[in-house]
Computed example of a mutant assay.
Amino acid sequence: MKAKISLVTLGTRDFARAFAFYRDGLGFEPHNYTEGEDFCMFKMEGTWLALFPRAELAADAGVEDDGRPPSGFALAHNVGSPAEVDAVFAQAVAAGAKPQKPPQKTFWGGYAGYFADPDGCLWEVAHNPFTDLT
């Protein structure tokens, strides 16, 4: 099997709110989206991000939607400098993200902060001076 993540789908409680956060707040461009649909994909570098109603995602996967926000993982957006971390973090918070951990020097020698999207999905914004993940 090829080691690759092709698509990350986030289950949303309020699709319109999540769509506005990612499209208008963070500036992600929708791909083949028609107004009024409840599914959207955003093309990104190396992978895709999708939004889908949480209950429908759970039903599709055959699991129960327990209503809790996900906390066992974080999506990460790596940038080229600590100043860029601060800028992206501020943009996300201005768009409605909940700050979880403000950007700061990390134990591993980088610089990072965490925010939660409107559905509670964690995002890390980081600068890694040792490995270019941008």
Rank of each mutant, 00 (worst) to 15 (best):
G72P: 02
P129I: 05
A61L: 15
D119T: 06
F39T: 02
K98N: 11
S71M: 14
M41S: 13
A83M: 13
V8N: 10
Q104T: 11
A76D: 12
G109D: 06
F15M: 04
F15P: 01
L122C: 14
H77N: 10
S81D: 13
V125K: 07
A50M: 03
M44Q: 14
N128A: 14
F21H: 00
W123F: 15
T34H: 05
A50D: 06
G113M: 10
N78F: 15
M44C: 03
A58L: 03
F19N: 06
K43E: 15
N78L: 13
N78G: 11
M44F: 03
P129S: 08
S81Q: 12
D117Y: 04
G120V: 05
A74P: 06
R13S: 11
M44T: 11
P53F: 07
G120P: 12
G36T: 01
L57W: 02
V93M: 08
E64D: 12
P129G: 09
T106C: 06
L10M: 01
D132Q: 09
A126G: 11
A50K: 05
K101Q: 10
P103N: 00
V63P: 03
P103R: 02
L26T: 07
E29I: 11
D60R: 08
I5G: 10
E64F: 12
Y114V: 09
V125T: 13
H31W: 05
E37D: 04
T134C: 15
A50I: 07
P69T: 04
T106N: 02
S81I: 10
S71A: 14
L122T: 13
D24R: 00
S71G: 15
P82F: 12
R54H: 02
L122W: 12
K105D: 14
H127L: 12
T9F: 05
A87D: 15
G72Q: 07
F39R: 06
G109F: 00
Y114G: 01
F42A: 03
G113D: 09
P82Q: 09
M41P: 08
Y111P: 10
W108P: 00
E84G: 11
F19E: 12
V93A: 14
T134M: 13
A20N: 04
A83L: 14
T47S: 09
T106G: 06
F89V: 12
N78P: 04
Y114M: 07
P69R: 01
V85R: 09
T131H: 13
V93S: 11
T34S: 06
